[in-house]
């Protein structure tokens, strides 16, 4: 929850049982693209562009993984909150 220079970070957990598979990845990238801020998704040491479905897919984040969302820019706070909400409701999927 640090915030300096418009940078916002937040930890989220992957609660989709299939992990960040095709549908959630598409959803995540789609939503991220709505924001002006640059948004990174970080798993362990690896950071990828949250606006790229291919990046998000190749992160291959499994069920239960902890990720960090890191947004930088004018609408960073809104972006992080929006993406966090997606993780919380499992990207609208049942499991």
């Amino acid at each position: 929850m640090n915030s300096n220079n418009g940078e916002v970070r937040r930890q989220v957990k992957v609660s989709n049982q299939l992990g960040l598979h095709a549908r959630p990845a598409a959803r995540l990238a789609q939503e991220a693209q709505q924001f002006e801020s640059s948004i990174a998704l970080i798993q362990d040491e690896t950071a990828v562009d949250a606006k790229s479905i291919l990046d998000v897919l190749t992160l291959a984040a499994p069920f239960g993984a902890t990720l960090e969302i890191q947004a930088k820019g004018s609408d960073a706070k809104g972006a992080v909150e929006r993406l966090e909400a997606l993780f919380l409701n499992r990207f609208g999927e049942e499991r």
């Binding site: 095709a22 549908r23 990845a25 598409a26 990238a29 789609q30 693209q33 562009d49 606006k51 790229s52 479905i53 291919l54 990046d55």
Partner: peptide, 15 residues
């Protein structure tokens, strides 16, 4: 939804 993800890939900076 398959077509949606194909659309996302077309717009993807990685491709």
């Amino acid at each position: 939804h398959i077509i949606d993800s194909h659309l996302m890939m077309l717009k993807d900076p990685n491709l």
